[in-house]
């Protein structure tokens, strides 16, 4: 049945295409839940992608390259954290600056690697699934990072809603003054959340450049960081919706690839995530108080203690 095979292939490919979106959006979700809006996801992903690719190309050591990409994303997030948390700069402006900086810096790092290819490596998929009938070979082709992103989703959902540190994180995003008065270190908690967001964006970037494509091209994330930011809003800050949204928009890119020029111009598909986000924003603001409570109340507002 070729149709079934095609559907299956698209479904499996969607998991792969959705992975960088899921990773970056989960990181941004944690950051926003603490009340910090980081619009620099695109820049952090690019840094992760460039550094990860460069290390993999030089050392041939993929796990080490992944770690370096994660650290690159986190390092950029640290700069952002210093600006908006310590210096209390405007979060929107700092985030935009971070993206532009990331685009330039990643191009610089990756300048010598544009035509390089990575050394060969064993497909590191989970071997037990490869033995399954029908879906086995397809599932087996998935990267370990795809499985890891699913584990991250479960862990973050559990952390946010079932653990005490997660409760504290949400509390900081909801009412930082109250959190400060009750005795929680608001700034430190936000730093951790921002760093985590950067690390996840870096991981998403590494996945793209080292595992998924695998090549380095300047500006290769092509707006995925922005989609990740939009996804968090689209999901109304709920992890399960982030997961669904990541695969929805991952699926859109795959369908777009398969149907190129057949039904609609591919540019239409590229617009979809943003249109969907705008629709959700409108829906949220029309649904009144209860729906607005979904957004962290202090999102984007700098915190001044002693005021």
């Amino acid at each position: 049945m070729p149709e079934l095979d095609l559907v299956l292939a698209i479904a499996i490919a969607t998991l792969g295409a959705g992975t960088p979106l899921l990773l970056a959006a989960l990181g941004e979700l944690v950051s926003e839940k603490s009340g910090v809006l980081n619009l620099g996801v695109e820049g952090m992903m690019l840094m992760g992608a460039a550094v990860g690719f460069a290390v993999a190309a030089e050392s041939g050591h993929f796990a080490f390259a992944t770690l370096c990409g994660v650290l690159a994303g986190a390092a950029l997030a640290l700069v952002f954290g210093f600006l908006v948390l310590t210096c209390r700069a405007n979060q929107v402006a700092a985030g935009l600056a971070l993206t532009i900086f990331g685009i330039g810096a990643s191009a610089l790092v990756g300048a010598g690697y544009t035509s390089r290819s990575l050394p060969a490596r064993e497909a590191a998929g989970a071997s037990f699934v490869a033995d399954l009938p029908v879906v086995g070979p397809l599932l087996g082709s998935l990267e370990a990072l795809t499985w890891l992103s699913l584990a991250c989703f479960a862990a973050i959902a559990w952390f946010l809603y079932r653990s005490r540190p997660g409760l504290v994180l949400r509390a900081v995003g909801d009412a930082p003054d109250s959190a400060h008065a009750v005795g929680y270190p608001v700034i430190a908690i936000r730093y951790l959340a921002v760093l985590f967001g950067g690390a996840m964006a870096g991981l998403g970037g590494v996945f793209l450049s080292v595992y998924y494509t695998p090549t380095w091209v300047e500006n290769m994330t092509a707006g995925r960081g922005w989609i990740a930011v939009a996804l968090v809003v689209f999901a109304s800050w709920r992890p399960a919706w982030v997961l669904a949204g990541a695969y929805l928009f991952g699926g859109v890119t795959i369908v777009q690839f398969h149907l190129q020029g057949v039904i609609l111009a591919s540019q239409i598909f590229s617009m979809l995530p943003y249109l969907a986000t705008i629709a959700v924003l409108v829906a949220i603001s029309r649904r009144g108080e209860a729906a607005r409570r979904l957004a962290p109340a202090s999102l984007g507002i700098p915190f001044h203690p002693e005021r």
Partner: peptide
């Protein structure tokens, strides 16, 4: 008050 509006009383 130093309360968290989006959370439950128990939280």
């Amino acid at each position: 008050f130093s309360l968290f509006p989006a959370l439950s009383v128990a939280e």
